[in-house]
C-alpha cells in the first residue's frame, strides 16, 4: 500500500506492507539514526517524533502515519549536535548506539517541560527519560550532560 506522510519536513510517499512497522520503514528510507535494541518497547532506542511528540517507532504501524509528520535525528542535526556536545564532554555517549533515541527524548523533554525558561527537577528529568535504556554509562554522565545543557541553554 501507499503511505503519504511528512518525514523531516518533506512530503514523502512510500510503498509499505500493511503490517510494516514505522521503524522498518524509516530505516528503509535511509534514517539510520533510528536503532532497535529490544523489539519489546523496553529500550527507547527507536524513539522518533510523531507530530512533535516522542514515540517508539518499533511499536507504531507505519500505516498510521498517513498525513502525520515524523521527525528523526536526520531532521534535527543542529539540535542534536548542540546537546551532543554536552554529552560528549561528559564522555557519556560511549558506544553511541542508544544516543539517537536518548537525544530525541531529551529534545522532546526540553520542548515539553522547559517552557518559559523553567528547568525541571532532577527527579522529573529521570522520570521523563526512564524509558531510554543505556548499558554503558550507568546514566550518571547522561544526567550531568542534560542538567548542564538545560542550565546553559535556559539560563
Amino acid at each position: 500500500m501507499e503511505l503519504r506522510f511528512e518525514l523531516n519536513g518533506k512530503p514523502v510517499t512510500a510503498e509499505i506492507e500493511a503490517g510494516e512497522l514505522l521503524f522498518d520503514v524509516l530505516r528503509r528510507l535511509g534514517c539510520y539514526s533510528v536503532k532497535c535494541g529490544c523489539e519489546t518497547t523496553n529500550c527507547g532506542l527507536c524513539t522518533v517524533w510523531v507530530d512533535g511528540k516522542p514515540m517508539l517507532s518499533c511499536s507504531v504501524p507505519a500505516a498510521r502515519m498517513e498525513n502525520h509528520a515524523v521527525t528523526t535525528m536526520e531532521g534535527l542535526q543542529e539540535e542534536a549536535a548542540r546537546f551532543g556536545a554536552f554529552l560528549a564532554k561528559e564522555g557519556a555517549e560511549q558506544c553511541g548506539f542508544c544516543s539517537p533515541g536518548f537525544i530525541m527524548n531529551v529534545l522532546a523533554m526540553e520542548k515539553e517541560l522547559c517552557r518559559d525558561g523553567r528547568i525541571p527537577e532532577k527527579e522529573e528529568i529521570r522520570e521523563y527519560l526512564a524509558g531510554n535504556l543505556c548499558r554503558c554509562t550507568g546514566y550518571v554522565g547522561q544526567m550531568r550532560a542534560v542538567e548542564k545543557y538545560l542550565r546553559e541553554s535556559r539560563g
Binding site: F83, L87, K89, G91, I103
Partner: peptide
C-alpha cells in the same frame, strides 16, 4: 577529559554501525 574522537558522528546519529 578530551571528548571521544568519534563523538560527533555518534551524537548526531550517523550511519556508522
Amino acid at each position: 577529559a578530551i571528548p571521544k574522537v568519534d563523538s560527533q558522528a555518534l551524537v548526531t546519529g550517523k550511519a556508522v554501525y
